[in-house]
């Protein structure tokens, strides 16, 4: 059983990550998938982590759950403060108790996360049996309640279904039911709607938002989709090549991005109703993590890059309004308000 440790100074902070570094030791060299990441997330808050392939956003989520495949991966340094302790130091048994009970994760493809030969109700109920020690029938009862809470129609009947009998959206709802069964403080969702159709995506996102708000669950939403970010998140961390390059509230990010990568990404999106003849595009290719340049990883693609960017990796700049970014020559549209 977990005991609540002394509360951190800010009681509403559920998770605080400091200087997290997860590296992969491969034949081709060390891949610094996550390389010095700091962020925190409060009760009921929705924090987005956006990035492209290889940005380290998924590895960040897995690191929090201590689910990084090892070997080749390893958390080489940093702290993950959760529930008054450092998860980097937690034992396997401690983690087993935390996972699914105080911190849950849902993935892109629910079909691979669900056991194909067990009924949905049994699988959702398993969480109750494992963590709360409920009997089979009680657990099933609670599972049906959870399925109902995720707005699955006729939950009694659906509990008796096998995963393949459910549509993609229903499966993801079942995953959400399972993840939220023990009312965890933190839900990590890695591209939860990427495999779903637009109309279904809208339903599932709406559900996640409502449930997290009602239960004051903190949600870490990992995604590549700026539309999902805009719809869901309170604050956003933009990752590039293993680092958070920009970290701010969602409105500032979209209206006044400071980092050229964020700005470029936002400009390159085909938007409905924009009627453009050409899309503004971010030139170049995503970085190769085994051969990162000496300075800023984005420098080779950056329209604003100067010699200094290629030599010195930029430190984190923090503005008074909480806006953080890593750039020597940020876009000027979020200056400190003049006193």
């Amino acid at each position: 059983m977990t005991e609540r440790a002394p509360k951190p100074c800010d009681s509403s902070v559920v998770l605080r990550v400091r200087d997290l570094r997860t590296h992969f030791f491969t034949n081709e060299g060390v891949v610094k998938a996550v390389d010095g990441v700091d962020f925190e997330i409060r009760r009921g808050e929705i924090l987005g982590i956006v990035g492209e392939s290889g940005s380290g956003k998924s590895v960040t989520g897995l690191s929090l759950m201590r689910l990084v495949a090892s070997p080749p991966g390893r958390i080489v340094s940093g702290q993950i403060e959760f529930g008054g302790r450092d998860l980097v130091e937690a034992s396997t048994t401690e983690m087993q108790d935390i996972r699914g009970r105080r911190m849950s994760m849902i993935f892109q493809d629910p079909l691979t996360s669900l056991n194909p030969v067990l009924r949905i109700g049994y699988q959702v109920g398993e969480v109750f049996r494992y963590h709360l020690g409920l009997s089979r029938s009680k657990a099933l009862h609670r599972a049906v309640d959870m399925l109902r809470a995720t707005e699955i129609p006729s939950p009694d009947r659906r509990a008796q279904s096998y995963p393949y009998e459910l549509s993609g959206g229903m499966r993801q709802r079942a995953m959400i039911a399972m993840a939220l069964a023990c009312e965890p403080e933190l839900l990590i969702a890695d591209e939860p709607t990427t495999a779903l159709d637009v109309t279904v995506q809208a339903q599932v996102l709406e559900l996640m938002k409502t449930i997290c708000r009602e239960r004051q669950t903190a949600l870490l939403l990992i995604t590549h989709d700026m539309g999902v970010v805009a719809h869901m998140c309170d604050r956003v961390a933009v990752m590039y090549a293993g680092k958070i390059v920009e970290y701010t509230d969602v409105h500032t990010l979209f209206a006044r991005p400071a980092h050229p990568y964020t700005a470029g990404l936002l400009r390159s999106l085909p938007r409905l109703g924009a009627k453009l003849r050409r899309l503004a595009s971010l030139e170049g290719q995503p970085p190769r993590l085994t051969r990162l340049p000496a300075g800023c990883a984005f420098a080779p693609r950056c329209p604003r890059a100067q010699d200094r960017c290629r030599e010195v990796a930029p430190d984190l700049t923090r503005l008074g309004n909480g806006h953080q970014f890593r750039c020597h020559f940020p876009l000027e549209n979020d200056k400190e308000p003049q006193a």
């Binding site: 392939s53 290889g54 380290g56 892109q108 990427t194 290719q285 970085p287 190769r288 051969r291 080779p300």
Partner: peptide, 22 residues
């Protein structure tokens, strides 16, 4: 099928221009 984004490939999978040249 909506294929999974390239994130599942190993993090070093994405080759870039310079990598090809190197």
């Amino acid at each position: 099928r909506t294929i999974s984004r390239t994130d599942e490939r190993p993090p070093d999978a994405a080759g870039s221009d310079d990598a090809v040249a190197e």
